[in-house]
Nucleic acid binder design. Structure first.
Lengths: 207, 207
DNA sequence: CACGTCAGTGAACATGTGTTCACTGGGGTG
DNA sequence: CACCCCAGTGAACACATGTTCACTGACGTG
């Protein structure tokens, strides 16, 4: 199972193992209840060896936040890459969202939880990130659908869409395991909701 | 400060003090990081006295969940009481939502956090409660606005509205303290979003 | 007025926490 | 081949956790 590896490769491998274990363990109880010793046990090292890789538990948490940011951004890159024709954009975006959540469920669960239950600084970081996403979406909408809406209106509709997609992530994460077909239902519902919003904003007049 | 009180009254008073202290303390870190000793210290009793009021810390948590449910339901009763004319319903509902969040911010923060970061049983309880709210809202929409939409469509739009209102609560809770006028902005945004959804669903055809 | 109930006390428990320290031993390099 | 670096070890630390137990003493009732 373990091949011939250089010392640096071995070190990097255990570092990643620590991150993975921490991510999995934080699925139950969040960052707040994550314990150094449980992580170490899961990785198969002694608790103190942890400090060869991170200066403190708090730093581990920040590393997890960074990892989650990377996952978020990768998904958004994928979404924007396929954002050309206005027709299929909704269906494509929802599918990409769901695909990414299924590829790295622990990252998205981590975001979903720490975004609102994490320590203040982490919450603030996620808030800024989502605000950025919202702004980009507002610009995309304004670009793809030339229209008389003010920037304020664009942000309002973008915010609603981001909120709806956040709800989709939550729905998938803590409802997927149970009944089959649930995910397809969530997808259909999300597509309908986005279409409703688009129709709504199309017939929208400020005031 | 302390009047003449019967033994039972005194007991009930400390019990409520425990609940209040626990609610305030769980504002930072959630139920997961709530410690018996910190609660006791805040109340002004010795840790062991806690067990005269609750069988365990877990039971304290369940009591807090019950309290939050009560706040949620009271708000919904207030919303439905004023749900007569279709015109002002959006503005009224948003205002009532915001008013209730400001009256018992700790309860709504508790719901917002534990709903997604709490122990599985608590999460499930909140999920059911919100599903109920969603169903009632779907029925209200179907009743107030006789229309050709299927129950499925009604639920889809109700779900979007509940999700949007959840977003409003979160926005108020961890953004209110900072700049003034933020709350008014959130209110305006929420009203616009609900109107967009209404317009969207009004022009909606299944498939 | 005597007596029992019972909210609150203080000591003790077993266990879990993050972090430090001196150490070992095998891979990497001169 | 000899030396060093350093990932991983194991003991120890100071402290926090939930819960138990025998206790005290004021309030409420007979």
């Amino acid at each position: 199972m373990t091949e011939e590896l250089s010392r640096n490769e071995r070190k990097e491998r255990t570092r990643q193992a620590i991150l993975d274990a921490a991510l999995e363990l934080s699925a139950e109880g969040g960052l707040a209840t994550l314990s150094l010793r449980s992580v170490a046990k899961r990785v198969g090292i002694v608790p103190t060896a942890f400090y060869r890789h991170f200066a403190s538990v708090e730093e581990l948490g920040l590393a997890l936040v960074d990892e989650s940011f990377a996952s978020l951004r990768e998904m958004l890159r994928e979404v924007r890459r396929d954002t050309r024709d206005i027709e299929s954009v909704i269906s494509n975006s929802v599918k990409i969202l769901v695909k990414n959540v299924n590829e790295r469920p622990d990252h998205f669960r981590f975001v979903a939880v720490e975004r609102i239950a994490g320590p203040p600084l982490v919450r603030e970081a996620f808030r800024r990130e989502m605000e950025l996403i919202e702004l980009e979406l507002a610009m995309d909408i304004g670009r793809l659908v030339p229209s008389p809406w003010s920037n304020d209106d664009l942000r309002t509709v973008a915010n609603l869409m981001v909120t709806a997609m956040t709800g989709v992530v939550e729905a998938i994460i803590n409802g997927a395991a149970s009944k089959p077909g649930w995910e397809d239902e969530v997808i259909r519902r999300a597509e309908s909701q986005l279409q409703m919003v688009v129709i709504g904003v199309a017939n929208w007049r400020s005031q």
